[in-house]
Computed example of a mutant assay.
Amino acid sequence: MKRDYRARADWHFAKADKAITADCDAMLAQHAAAGLLQSGATLKKSVKIWANRSEEAVTGVLAEMGSVIEKRDKEWSQAIGSVKQAIEAHRLKAEDQLGRYFRMAAPPGDMDGGAMKAVRGLLDAAAQGLLGQVDSFGDGWTAPRPKKWNERHPVAFAVIMAIIGAALALAGRAAF
């Protein structure tokens, strides 16, 4: 049965998007009360929220993958590729998603200025970190170990062991 890992990744990112919006709304209220609007603090905090929630989404989809895929073959490679595509799509949506917070935080008339260039750099760095997390998982450094052959095929293992046992019993009888 073919599984759609891109759809699962998109689901995790949609869930993260809701959490990002809620967290950014709360942050915006805090920063407004503290007089921190139109400062770099609001911009940086928005990016940090995006990065943290996105990392949670990636961790969730990778955990699902690791529990479902039993061996690292073509399905594994395709699943890793699907998650990377989902991360890239999520990054492309980030500026639109965070745009409202950026407009409130950026100095007037600086939506294309130095502050926004720095924010784009931070978003790109966060996305590269997510891709690195997926690469490490895909290479097996953080992925769960695949099941042993006898655990994946318990019936075949039992039959083979029964045949070996019978052969040893017959050989033992013939020797005495």
Rank of each mutant, 00 (worst) to 15 (best):
K93Q: 14
Q85S: 12
V68S: 01
F13W: 01
A79L: 01
A32M: 11
H90W: 04
E75A: 05
A63V: 08
G35R: 08
Y5G: 01
F13G: 01
I69E: 05
L92N: 15
A94P: 05
K93A: 15
A7Q: 13
M65H: 03
D23I: 04
I49V: 15
V47F: 09
L43P: 05
D110F: 11
A33D: 12
V68I: 05
D17I: 04
K45W: 06
P107R: 10
S82Q: 14
A79D: 02
M65S: 02
W11T: 12
A57N: 10
D10R: 14
A79G: 04
V83P: 00
I20M: 10
R100F: 08
R53F: 03
E70C: 05
D17F: 04
G81T: 15
K44F: 13
S67H: 01
S39D: 03
L62V: 06
I49Q: 08
V83D: 00
C24M: 10
H31T: 04
L28R: 12
D110T: 14
W50T: 05
Q97M: 14
S46C: 10
S54C: 11
L43S: 10
K44I: 11
Q85C: 09
R8N: 01
S39P: 07
M111L: 15
S46L: 07
E75Q: 03
S39V: 02
K74Q: 14
M65D: 00
G99V: 03
A33Y: 06
Q97L: 14
Q38K: 14
S82F: 03
D96V: 14
K84R: 13
R6S: 05
G109K: 08
A14Y: 06
G109S: 07
R91N: 11
G40A: 11
E55G: 15
G99I: 03
L92F: 12
E55D: 14
A14R: 08
G99K: 07
F13E: 01
S82T: 06
Q78F: 02
V68H: 00
L62I: 04
R91C: 07
M111Y: 12
G40P: 06
K45V: 05
R91G: 05
A41P: 07
W76V: 08
V58C: 09
S82N: 09
H31N: 13
Q38I: 03
A22P: 01
T59C: 04
D25A: 12
M104H: 07
A14V: 07
A32F: 10
G35T: 08
S67K: 02
V47R: 09
A51D: 12
R72G: 01
S82D: 14
R6L: 09
L28D: 10
A22S: 11
